[in-house]
Design a protein around this nucleic acid. Sequence first.
DNA 1: ATCAGTTTAGAAAACCTTTTCTATAGAAAG
DNA 2: CTTTCTATAGAAAAGGTTTTCTAAACTGAT
Lengths: 333, 333
Amino acid sequence: MAKVTIQDVAKEAGVSITTVSRVMNNNYPVAEKTRKKVEIAIKKLAFRPNLLARSLIQNSTKTIGILTPSLENLFFSEVIKGIDQVTGPKGYTTFLCHTEGKEDKERELIESLLNRQVDGIIMIDPRRENVLSGYLEKLAKEVPLLLINGHSAGIACDYVLNAAEDGVMEALRYFEGEGLTKIAFLRGKKSYSYDIKEEVYDHFMKEHGYSGQVVRIKDGNDAHTVEQAKEAVMGLLDGEDCPEAILACNDWMAVGALNAAKSMGTQVPKDLRIIGFDNTIISQITEPKLSTIDQQMTKLGGLAAKRIYQMMTDEDHNRQKIYLETKLIIRES
Amino acid sequence: MAKVTIQDVAKEAGVSITTVSRVMNNNYPVAEKTRKKVEIAIKKLAFRPNLLARSLIQNSTKTIGILTPSLENLFFSEVIKGIDQVTGPKGYTTFLCHTEGKEDKERELIESLLNRQVDGIIMIDPRRENVLSGYLEKLAKEVPLLLINGHSAGIACDYVLNAAEDGVMEALRYFEGEGLTKIAFLRGKKSYSYDIKEEVYDHFMKEHGYSGQVVRIKDGNDAHTVEQAKEAVMGLLDGEDCPEAILACNDWMAVGALNAAKSMGTQVPKDLRIIGFDNTIISQITEPKLSTIDQQMTKLGGLAAKRIYQMMTDEDHNRQKIYLETKLIIRES
DNA sequence: ATCAGTTTAGAAAACCTTTTCTATAGAAAG
DNA sequence: CTTTCTATAGAAAAGGTTTTCTAAACTGAT
């Protein structure tokens, strides 16, 4: 049962392949009678146009490559959903690739996507090494490239990013307003956005003369992360410099802190306040419910998709950096 | 800066495109001297072979389409990761599509994937309507099609599935062994696997003469699901037929049950036992940690990938149905 | 020096479309 | 009854590869 091609349809309908193509794409006048014949033939043979051939000639595949470090964090799922909601209706299909946060894998996947002639590439949290080495900057000249949360003022490229800095500031000011100044910062090891957040935190604490402490948790799969965060925070709560408040770089870590407090009998929010980051579903199902900083991830993905669509369809484009506001959500922690 | 093609490389190296192709694919003897020339030209021009053209002629795109209802449930992320770990090294790239659990969207996406000439399609939790209507059965004749957890003894097709039935049995027997017979079953509305699980539950309860009750939660995004499960379970705990144990169809629902117990002051596990399903990360970070039924999701994905690879590469194949064991994990609930 | 056999290279067809350019038929206008 | 225009249809080129088939050049044996 060989595949049915436009040839077969043409023969069946007794017309040329040109005419069949025109009926399908509706981009050239075709007599009503002819059109009917062709449509009947298409239906009869269940013809399915080969998009490869079309892409080859039109020099556009209507595909977008998405690179994400992982799928485990719901942050990424939300972003991807946001992208999809915009690109799907426009007829784009997406290649989703996980880099596992590895520099070489990231490059390898990008090369593969280029060979596949994607019309654009969206990267979520790109690896620092590939940014610094100039690899991405060169890439941006070859193909529409959009970085989501690629916090790197340096390179010429398009961005959509959370104003995570503002989010951190808002959280810290909130704590301050509540009279809390012994604030610890809980972060993962390797990530641009964590670096940025820490910088802002440091700056704020120094400026106000508060003594802070930064705890670094080794990145891993999320259950481990939570476990480690819990242990680290238990250490903190047990120590002499016991903080009154904790700002975590994501919701998983915040859950770890929450669990630590429970284990130690520390009351949240009475004796310890906790604010997470991302407003993932997780933060809505803990008891007490986690306060967190909403990053509007779905919207972020949507913005990214709209921007890359512009880049793929408009000829000239100036580089843009689009910031999305964060929002402090105070729940019960 | 037009794209560099095999033509350009051939000219640069002073050979024919045939020779360039042979050097790239290493599938025909080429004199060492010639090879060097070509390799230098390739590097100099940064030639990137157009996979569309290759796919067109070889009638294989080395792509796989994955359909999933959503990304929100970590169950799906894990499965996808499992698939990826197997297909990636074999040179396959995946189109990931979310159906949002909608019948028509599912069909639409499948058509699009077929137009894109995917070599195979993996569906996670396919829509019941598309199974019943015979759509999928017809599809399976056109393209290698593998269903993950498409519990539908009926249609001729390849499957990889959790022996969810056994999981339910194991959990129920466990409860029974603990002397608990007032067991409620907490489930979402629309899903094959939930149906299967409920059937097994019903059968068990009837057979032993225990009085059970099934609670149906409207499927939604997961935070809502948790909230609704919580409310439903609060109603249950408050009622006269208050259960001693709850089996939930997934971990989210189990969290809802856990939260309900906390709200009502019911002690877990002392006064109420809860077992979830899936062993997602969620179940490892609650307090108390959730007992659950592990479905080995990553492994499931890996099995699926291996099987579809067979289907895509071997000529003849008999339909297979591969079951993967579940495992009851007793933690603290 | 001739012949057969072995390496190596290239020309051209093929894959399935879209698109440009040309051609035909019929209608309208003179 | 020509001529011009319009509406419609088809032939052929193009897109970038792979692959088959043919050809050339060299090797070694007679």
